[in-house]
Design a protein around this nucleic acid. Structure first.
Lengths: 239, 239
DNA sequence: CGGCCGTTTGATGGAACTCAATCTACGTGG
DNA sequence: CCACGTAGATTGAGTTCCATCAAACGGCCG
C-alpha cells in the first residue's frame, strides 16, 4: 500500500487504466502531481457558472453534478460526477463553464498539475469523449424515453461508470442520490420517481433501501432501456 | 477574393476568428491543409455509430446532425451540425463515435490535416467547449422546458450559431429543417411541433414559410426561453 | 395527372404533473 | 427521554400537456 493520497487516487487511476497502459512510475507521477486533496461538504459549489476553468480538477470521492436553474425554480442536472470524473469542461482549460457544479455528497477533490507525459493528454481527451457519450445518453433519455426507461438507463450507466472507477460491487453499490436529485437528473418529478422506483422494485428489477442499491436483473434492465455500455477506444501509440 | 476552397472555408474561419486571432497567413495555412471538399447528398451517413474517428472533419456547407435510434423507431437528434462545426467527437481523435452522423441537407465536408500551429489546437479545444455547451443546452431544453420554451430556445441557439459562422442575416436565415426533424431534436412529435410553431407565429414571435425563417421578436423569445448565448472565453496567449 | 413529401387539422387517450397530506427516520435541544 | 423540527419517502385525487391516430391539404416533380 502506498501513501494515503495514492489510495485516494485509486478511482482515477483505475479509470485511466482502462484507457491507456499506466505503469507504476506513471501512476506515481500522477499522484505526485496532485495538490493536496480538498474536502467539500454536501451542497457546496465546486464551480460557478460563467467562471473560468483554470485548473484541471478531479473528483476522487463522493458524488457531484453539473446543474442549471431556471428562474421559476425548475432545475436540471445535466451530468453526474462520480469518483474519477473531471470537474468543469472536462479536461479543457481556458473556457467558461456553462453550468454550476455542486457537491451532492461530501466530496474530495484534487487538482492535477501539468504532466509532461503525453500519454496523459491522450487519456484525458478520451475521458472527454466518455463525458460526451454520457451527455448524449442523457439527451437520448430525456428526449425519447419513458420514465421507466430513463430510470433504468441511468442506473445502468451509473453502474457501468462505478465499475470503471473500480467501485462496482457486482451490481451492488452505495447510492447517495435522493429521489429529488434523481428527478432533476431524469427530467421528471420526485413523485413520479418514487412511483417508478416502486414499479421496478415490484418487478424484481432492482433493490433499493437506504443508501444501498442493487441491480437484480441486469439483462431485463438492459433490454428495457436499450442500454449499451460506451466503448472505450482501443488504445494505440499516437494513433 | 481567394480560390474557391478558401471561400468555402469561410464559415470555419469566421467561427475561429471569434475564438483566436487568425491572421492571413494562418487562414491560408488552414485552407492549405484542407483536403478537397467532398459533397454528400441529404440523408447520407457521414459517420457510423461505433466507427473510429480517425480524421478531423468539418462541415463547411449544409446542415447535419448526430442521431440515435431506438429499436421501435423512436429517434433522437442529439446535436445539430451547422457550417463550421466538427464531425464526430468534436476535434478529438482515436475514439469511437457514440452516435450516427447524417446529412439533413446536401452537405460539403472538408478534412483538416495536422497543423503545427498550436493556436489551432487551442481554438479547436474551445470549439469542443462550445459543443459541450450546446449539448447541455439540449439537456436543459429536454429535461425541464415546455414545448414552446424548447422551440424558442433552440431557434435562438441556431441563430446565435449561424451568426458565429457568419451566416446570420440579422435574424433572417435559411432554415432547412422539416417539422419531423425539429420534432426529433426537441423530443416531441411532429404534430406538436406544428401546433407550437403556429402559436409562435400567431404571437408574432417568428416568421417561417418555406425555407425562410425570421426571428421577429428576439427579446420576447429570449425571456420566454431564458436563453443565454454561450460566452466565448477571452483568448489569452497560452493561458 | 398521380404520387410523394411535408404540413395542417381534429378527436381521443394517457403518461406524467400538481397539490396536498401522511409517514418515517433521524438528529437536536429542552 | 421525549418533544420537536427537518429531510426524505410515500400515497391519493384531480388536472394538463402532449402523444396517438387518422384524415385532409398543399406543393413539387417525374
Amino acid at each position: 500500500m502506498e501513501a494515503s493520497i495514492s489510495s485516494e487516487m485509486d478511482p482515477l487511476i483505475h479509470k485511466l487504466s482502462h484507457i491507456v497502459a499506466l505503469y507504476r512510475p506513471q501512476q506515481q507521477a500522477l499522484s505526485a502531481n496532485c495538490r493536496p486533496v480538498r474536502l467539500y461538504p454536501a451542497r457546496a459549489q465546486l464551480l460557478a457558472q460563467k467562471q473560468a476553468v483554470t485548473e484541471r480538477r478531479v473528483v476522487l470521492g463522493g458524488w457531484a453534478c453539473h446543474t442549471r436553474l431556471l428562474a421559476d425554480g425548475r432545475r436540471q442536472i445535466m451530468h453526474l460526477l462520480l469518483p474519477g470524473d473531471f470537474i468543469g469542461t472536462a479536461s479543457r482549460r481556458g473556457t467558461l463553464s456553462c453550468s454550476t457544479v455542486i457537491a451532492l455528497t461530501p466530496v474530495t477533490v484534487a487538482t492535477i498539475g501539468d504532466l509532461e507525459d503525453t500519454t496523459f493528454e491522450a487519456a484525458f481527451q478520451i475521458c472527454d469523449s466518455l463525458t460526451e457519450a454520457y451527455l448524449m445518453n442523457q439527451i437520448m433519455r430525456l428526449g425519447r424515453q419513458s420514465a421507466q426507461e430513463r430510470l433504468a438507463h441511468l442506473l445502468l450507466e451509473i453502474r457501468s461508470r462505478l465499475d470503471l472507477a473500480g467501485l462496482g460491487g457486482r451490481g451492488r453499490f452505495d447510492f447517495p442520490l435522493t429521489q429529488d436529485v434523481l428527478a432533476d437528473v431524469l427530467g421528471i418529478t420526485n413523485v413520479h420517481v418514487n412511483r417508478t422506483l416502486q414499479n421496478m422494485r415490484a418487478s424484481g428489477l432492482i433493490e433499493l433501501s437506504g443508501r444501498t442499491f442493487r441491480i437484480k436483473d441486469q439483462p431485463a434492465l438492459e433490454s428495457l432501456a436499450e442500454y449499451h455500455a460506451p466503448i472505450v477506444a482501443p488504445w494505440q501509440e499516437d494513433g
